[in-house]
């Protein structure tokens, strides 16, 4: 008989025991380990996904920050450029103002120096011309300048027409008004009497003459009725001389200014660029 009943029964039992043993030692642990691994991998994948999400979020945030920074940078650059332009314009204006101020100051100083020089020159010329004329007259003609000057004035006054005398005193309302005769030298008594007589003859006996000496006055004699002035001195000549000198000085300044102006313009160009 190929089939043994006892063996069949024992084999069935053996098989069931083997099923139990393998379930306990093989399938249970192996499936448990596989499930645990799957859970772990799933957890890791989930964690990785979460990290990826977080990374994407952070990347997005960083991108936004970078864009913001770029915008801020552009804005700051634009602002800086604007500020620099404004500063540049301001500095150029200040430099122009400073140059203008310096120029004005220099011009003022030059004017003052010129004025002072001309004044000084005028005085020197007066004294020199006066001294020279006196000396020339004395040495060559044996004449006194003051005397000759007074004589010439008297000749001029005596030659004046009635209309001129009338015009001379038209500002005088009071017949007793005084006429100031100012001279740079002391008039002698004779000379005073001569001019007093002349005034009385042509104008009025009531006229009162006041003689004054003024050292600062330009060489000559000045007659001052109220509201009028008649000068007999070197002033016109000196004024003509002064005008000529002024022209010469200004011409010299013009050359200097043009010469000096070039570097200023160059400097100006440099600032502009």
């Amino acid at each position: 008989m190929l089939i043994d009943g006892f063996t069949v029964i024992v084999q069935i039992i053996n098989f069931l025991v083997l099923v139990a043993l393998l379930k306990f030692f093989l399938y249970g642990p192996i499936l448990g380990a596989m499930d645990a691994r799957e859970r772990k991998i799933a957890a890791r994948l989930e964690a990785a996904k979460a990290e990826e999400r977080e990374a994407k979020k952070q990347a997005s945030a960083f991108r936004k920050k970078n864009e913001d920074w770029a915008q801020q940078q552009e804005s700051l650059f634009a602002k800086a450029a604007q500020t620099a332009d404004a500063q540049k314009t301001k500095m150029i204006q200040e430099a122009h103002a400073e140059v203008d101020g310096l120029r004005a100051k220099w011009q003022t100083s030059m004017e003052q120096q010129k004025k002072a020089f001309l004044e000084d020159l005028r005085h020197r010329v007066i004294h020199q011309v006066y001294a020279t004329a006196r000396r020339v007259l004395h040495d060559l003609a044996n004449q006194d300048l003051e005397t000759q000057m007074f004589s010439a004035l008297m000749t001029h006054l005596e030659g004046m027409s009635g209309k001129e005398w009338k015009s001379f005193i038209e500002g005088m309302t009071d017949q007793n008004a005084k006429i100031i005769i100012e001279s740079v030298f002391e008039l002698s008594a004779t000379q005073r009497a001569q001019i007093t007589k002349l005034m009385h003859d042509h104008l009025s006996e009531d006229i009162h003459l006041v003689f004054e000496t003024c050292a600062d006055s330009i060489c000559g004699i000045t007659i001052r009725p109220p509201g009028k002035k008649m000068a007999w001195h070197l002033d016109d000549y000196l004024t003509a001389l002064e005008t000529e000198i002024k022209k010469a000085v200004e011409s010299a300044q013009g050359v200097k200014r043009r010469g000096k102006h070039k570097p200023v313009m160059k400097h100006h160009d440099t600032l502009e660029s």
Partner: peptide
């Protein structure tokens, strides 16, 4: 290779 074993498995 035993028919008893295969029978036992078949019966199971």
């Amino acid at each position: 290779g035993s028919l008893s074993t295969t029978t036992a498995l078949a019966l199971a």
